[in-house]
Design a binder for these strands. Structure first.
Length: 629
RNA sequence: GGCGGUGUAGCUCAGAUGGUUAGAGCAUACGGCUCAUAUCCGUAGUGUCCGGGGUUCAAUUCCCUGCACCGCCA
């Protein structure tokens, strides 16, 4: 038996699930369902990534301890997947006991092999940037951002000797053209590798971070990110031993979005190499869904979250749209309008209507059971197209071109619709002499529906099951890809049911057609006490200059009764000299942040729209430092 | 600032290791059918394939350069 193993990234629990998570996971599910139906033994892993400072912070902000916080958010992901008809075989969490053990055993292994070292070194540390600089990064011995001379500081951490495997990795990627795919991302990985790899810092001292897995060889440190998160792909199949591991690891493929190409394409293979484990087989990289809010319906008075649209329009339609409208590897646009168009054109008109008209005629002309057939030369075109369909779809799956698989299936749907128009069953029905021919045509239609249903099962499991049910197919399990290799799989005499519309047409109200003006992005209501927490003041700009290397950021010195420095992102629309002397509104008590290396102690108020950025200013001449309320 | 991506029909996008008339869907117009969710089938179009330069017998495709938009990093 052939095997198949696919993973999604484990999702970081500092935010709730969104369309990006849903897409990756649905692709993994479609692939898994496909390979299961093709006779493979398949294994599908997803899960959550739960350690690190961002999670610790998010937990603290939510007033929870990290474990109960991660339990809660991880649960959100776990609960979402059944609602998307996801059929993962396992759900891994990095806080699982077995995962911690695997991480520690691999760290120990790499450590024993001499590929992890303790780096206590002196470096050029820029206080403003809170980071170390390499000699080569400095400009005239100074921090490139602050143009100050960095101080010499000591820092201790554990490092993975990644640089040692750079040549091996380049060689491996070159020898295995589909190790990273599609090709654009393979090229990108090779481009990274043209520069010398630095060793990977893999620890944080417990004085700074405790929410992590303690290093097996130094209990004063936890491991940081990579040796924790990436290793889930091994934990999920029961590494280091066992039948699952030996079965699935050799055929492993990862599915990721392009933002995490570097850790998966560079760090992970070298880590595996260092641990003496075979690299994964494929890294499949997809693009982003861009959300065009202008093209999303505003009739509901809220900004539309794509994920919510599955409830409005149905899960199968949602899965279909995601798979059909994105070319795997490239970015795509998500708009409600495009979604509705797909539903009406492809699902309602082409497929839904085909099911409806075929079953309607079968019931009307053949009494509700699948009739017997007699071969006819005019039908070979349809039958041959059906035979060719699975190989085409399989070919598309092998190259991750899911949209092409769907196009192939829809070409067959169109062909079947044409078959009806050409054969005119309603004319045949008027002449008792051609009864046999009518039966054959109807049978062929029903069999075509069966073939279609089988092939769309990975994408739209519910609709497929529905169609098979209407065709009277009793043993759904038998409806695999083997069953569509030869024509005639639908038993004669199968009991047919007409049923309701499979995909009713849907209405989409264009945003601008809405008569009543409704704000689309009103935030949650707050109390007056909440508002009073904001310290709004009148300030006067004393000096302004551009932040080095930034188009947008301006560094402003302001007078609010005291002198402060703030950084404002208005540089694309205001020149520094335009601002000096202006009275502006400023939030004083915003937590200071560092932008491009400059610390900002407040934020000016401005509005941004298509016309550009406009500062909030005052009618008259208010006193500097006065409260705004 | 560095790196990368994208720019093809009204819209959303495919595609071509360089080679005759550059494609699909949607939208539009016209025609056919009535089994069907007013659906289906057929026909008809439209394009300086972002600008400029180079290589070539031949470039929209390869190279250089410019512009616009987007993303990542610092």
């Amino acid at each position: 038996m052939k095997n198949f193993y696919v993973t999604t990234p484990i999702y970081y629990v500092n935010a709730s699930p969104h369309i990006g998570h849903a897409y990756t996971t649905i692709v993994a599910d479609v692939m898994t369902r496909f390979y299961r139906m093709a006779g493979y033994r398949a294994y599908f892993l997803t899960g959550t990534d739960e350690h690190g400072d961002k999670v610790a912070e998010a937990a603290q902000q939510a007033g929870e301890d990290p474990q109960s916080y991660t339990d809660r958010i991880s649960g959100q992901f776990r609960d979402l997947w059944p609602k998307l008809a996801i059929t993962n075989d396992y759900f891994v969490r990095t806080t699982d006991t077995d995962h911690k053990e695997v991480v520690r055993s691999i760290l120990q292994k790499v450590y024993d092999a001499g590929d992890i070292y303790f780096g206590e070194y002196e470096g050029h540390y820029c206080v403003g940037c809170e980071r170390f600089y390499r000699e080569s990064e400095l400009v005239d011995g100074m921090c490139p951002d602050h143009l100050t001379v960095p101080e010499t500081r000591k820092e201790s951490n554990y490092f993975f000797r990644m640089s040692k495997y750079q040549d091996w990795l380049i060689d491996h990627i070159k020898k295995n053209p589909d190790f990273i795919r599609p090709e654009r991302y393979r090229n990108e990985a090779l481009a990274f590798l043209k520069e010398p790899l630095e060793d990977l810092c893999i620890s944080r001292p417990k004085t700074r971070l405790t929410w992590g897995i303690t290093l097996p060889f130094d209990d004063q440190y936890v491991t940081y990110v990579w040796f924790d998160a990436l290793i889930n792909y091994l934990t999920g199949v029961g590494y280091p031993e066992g039948e699952r591991y030996t079965t699935f690891w050799p055929v492993s493929q990862h599915l990721i979005a392009k933002d995490i190409l570097k850790p998966h394409g560079i760090y992970w293979p070298t880590m595996l190499k260092g641990a003496g484990i075979e690299p994964y087989q494929h890294l499949n990289v997809h693009g982003y869904w861009n959300i065009d809010q202008n093209k999303m319906s505003k009739s509901r008075g809220t900004v539309v979250k794509p994920l919510d649209l599955k409830d409005t329009y149905g899960l199968d339609a949602f899965r279909y749209f995601l798979m059909r409208d994105m070319v795997f590897g490239l970015d795509a646009n998500f708009s409600e309008e495009a979604f509705v168009q797909r539903i009406n054109a492809d699902l309602a008109n082409d497929l839904g209507n085909l099911v409806s008209r075929s079953l309607s005629m079968a019931v009307k002309y053949c009494g509700g059971t699948a009739p017997a057939t007699v071969d006819h030369p005019d039908d070979t075109h349809l039958i041959e197209a059906a035979a060719k369909l699975f190989p085409d779809v399989e070919q598309s799956f092998r190259s991750l071109q899911f949209h092409k698989a769907l196009i192939s299936i829809w070409e067959f749907i169109n062909l079947t619709n044409r078959y009806i128009v050409e054969r005119e069953p309603w004319s045949l029905a008027k002449d008792p002499a051609v009864r046999e021919r009518l039966d054959t045509v109807i049978y062929n239609l029903l069999e075509a529906l069966r073939v279609i249903a089988v092939l769309i099962t990975p994408f739209m499991p519910d609709a497929a099951g529905d169609i098979l049910g209407r065709l009277g197919v009793e043993d759904i399990e038998s409806q695999n890809f083997e069953s569509v290799r030869t024509w005639g799989g639908l038993p004669i005499g199968s009991l047919l049911t007409r049923g309701e519309s499979l995909f009713p047409r849907v209405e989409y109200q264009k945003p601008e057609a809405s008569a009543v003006k409704v704000l689309t992005d009103v935030k949650d209501e707050i109390s007056f006490e909440d508002f009073e927490k904001i310290d709004l003041r009148v300030a006067e700009v004393i000096a302004a200059e551009r932040v080095k290397k930034s188009d947008k950021l301006l560094k402003l010195k302001i007078d609010v009764g005291e002198e402060r420095t703030i950084v404002a992102g208005v540089g694309a629309h205001y020149r520094p000299e335009d601002l000096v002397g202006k009275k502006i509104a400023v939030i004083l008590n915003l937590k200071p942040v560092k932008l491009m290396g400059v610390e900002s102690h407040g934020m000016l108020l401005a509005t941004e729209s298509e016309g550009g950025v406009t500062l909030v200013s005052f009618e008259g001449d208010p006193v500097v430092g006065a409260r705004v309320s």
